[in-house]
């Protein structure tokens, strides 16, 4: 989670309107699902990966590493389609292999489309988007505050762990267990104390129960929207043409 968040926060696409990124990513996702997997899926995969790495500035190695996790599941699933089991043991099923390949392509295309959105959009922007679509502000604010809080707790836990380790607290399984227990026990009151002081800080700036902030204005650009629509149309066109030729 932390690495996805970090990439999203630093992506040059972070400041683009969520609606534009959603249009592109969900459009590609839809194409991944409806186009014939060959070559449609492959085209979607190529476009989504190239956009993420080439335009949205996600380092290729990081993109691959994050892509690999869900892709592993896809491969395991595909293996069950391509392999049969009978009295003679495992056997390769030619029909199954075609189905498996189609599934792999389609899933890879779908995953890469979604990554385009999730690697360029911090979680907090999604909450803001949901708020515009009708999520109650109280819920949205709680979600945002909790999200920020998680990072502070994580930092605290990391620092405490490092300090315990520096004092040989993780030397051997017995000690490690005791140190970890101590860390967990210390984290809870720390979290409460932190929440209390956060409220003090907010109250000092006039907190009255509503966490109003001024989100950066992001205007939707007709040029970018046209470019997105043109991309989607050409992916769809090429995919269909190549399949029916």
């Amino acid at each position: 989670m932390a690495s996805i968040d970090r990439l999203a926060q630093t992506s040059p696409w972070r400041t683009l309107p969520l609606a534009e990124k959603a249009l592109l990513a969900l459009g590609l996702l839809l194409l991944a699902l409806v186009l014939p997997p060959w070559p449609g899926g492959a085209i979607v995969l190529a476009v989504a990966a190239a956009t993420a790495i080439g335009l949205a500035g996600i380092p290729a190695a990081q993109w691959l590493a994050i892509f690999a996790a869900p892709f592993g599941f896809v491969l395991t699933g595909a293996a069950t389609l391509a392999l049969g089991w009978d009295s003679g043991g495992f056997r390769f099923l030619p029909d199954g292999a075609v189905a498996a390949l189609a599934m792999v392509l389609r899933s890879a295309a779908a995953v890469s489309s979604l990554l385009l959105l999730s690697l360029t959009t911090p979680a907090t922007d999604f909450v803001r988007g949901a708020q515009r679509l009708g999520l109650p502000p109280e819920l949205a604010e709680t979600a945002l505050a909790t999200y920020g809080f998680l990072f502070i707790l994580q930092d605290t836990a990391t620092a405490m762990h490092a300090s315990q380790a520096a004092r040989l607290g993780y030397d051997g399984p017995g000690r490690a267990l005791r140190s970890l227990g101590g860390l967990a026990a210390a984290l809870l009151p720390r979290a409460f104390e932190r929440a209390r002081r956060l409220e003090t800080g907010l109250a000092a700036r006039g907190f009255d129960g509503r966490l109003r902030v001024l989100a950066a204005a992001r205007t939707i650009s007709p040029i970018r929207v046209s470019a997105i629509l043109a991309t989607l149309a050409s992916v769809a066109g090429t995919g269909l043409w190549a399949a029916w030729r």
Partner: peptide
């Protein structure tokens, strides 16, 4: 009031949003 530990004060998703909190209030 500015507290001793800035983590007790910053809560918003971005720095600019956090700074906007007081003026809006």
């Amino acid at each position: 009031l500015v507290l001793q530990d800035p983590d007790d004060q910053l809560f918003a998703p971005t720095v600019a949003e956090d700074v906007s909190f007081g003026p809006l209030n």
